[in-house]
Simulated assay, not measured.
Amino acid sequence: METHKETPPQWKTTIIISTSLQVLTQMLTAQQHRIRFSDSVQSGAFIFPLSGTAFLLVDPQDLPEPFEESGLIEKIKKFVQVHRNCFLLLHAPFNGKRELEILTLIQKRFFASNLRILPVRNNTEIVKGMLTIAKATSKPHVDNIRDRMSLARAHIIEISPVSPGDPAIFSFI
């Protein structure tokens, strides 16, 4: 007897993309996402309006030497000011010395900001990373995750031998 596992419907969304990023659109349209090109979106940017997330793709190979004079820090700074929930997709297929130096410089410069950095190696990882984050932060998925986290927290508190207000919880610190 065969059992058929019902697959959930594929998640689809609208993505606003910089006109300079038409290469990755084939992968996104193949997954039936709606693509809107915009000249007003910062070059290298992907915006997911329904989840409130934005991604900026940076390829260190495209940056001139010396890196500090490339204008990238100013570009990232503007991106962080415009988008509250933002991610930097650092395309580093080989993780060479230069890529690590650039990653370290960006991490140091934007340490206290709302920028999160996601190193990616290829177009598949770029698309998968963006879609995973955008889906997890969009409604109703974010509500489902929040509910499940709340239930997990309640369950942990319920089965814990230590009461929530007990100072002994922090005695190991």
Rank of each mutant, 00 (worst) to 15 (best):
H91I: 00
S43E: 15
K75P: 03
D39N: 15
I35M: 14
F87H: 11
R121S: 08
L103S: 13
F94H: 04
F87N: 04
P64K: 15
E68I: 09
R121T: 08
P66L: 11
I73Y: 13
A92T: 05
L56E: 02
L88V: 03
L89A: 00
V58W: 01
R34H: 09
V80Y: 10
V82D: 12
L115Q: 08
E65V: 13
H83I: 06
R121V: 03
G96F: 04
G44S: 09
L89Y: 01
V41L: 15
L90T: 05
T53W: 03
P66F: 08
D39I: 06
I76A: 09
S113P: 05
E99W: 07
D59T: 15
K77L: 05
L72W: 09
R84T: 13
S70R: 14
R116E: 09
R84W: 04
G96I: 09
S40N: 15
D62H: 11
R34K: 11
L118C: 14
S43V: 04
V82A: 08
S51I: 02
G44F: 10
S113L: 06
G71N: 12
K78D: 13
R98T: 07
C86S: 15
P93D: 01
D39M: 13
R36T: 11
D59H: 08
L89I: 00
R36N: 13
E65I: 12
I76P: 07
L115C: 07
L103C: 11
V120Q: 00
L63P: 05
L88R: 08
T104M: 05
L118R: 12
K77W: 05
L118M: 15
L89H: 02
I117H: 01
R121P: 02
N123G: 02
I106P: 06
L103G: 03
H33Q: 07
F48K: 01
P60T: 01
A30V: 03
L115H: 09
Q32R: 10
Q81P: 00
L118N: 10
L63A: 06
L118G: 03
N123M: 06
E69P: 01
D62C: 03
E65F: 13
E99H: 08
F37N: 05
F94M: 04
V58G: 03
I47D: 12
Q107K: 15
L88T: 03
L100F: 11
R116T: 15
Q107S: 14
F37M: 09
A112D: 15
S38I: 04
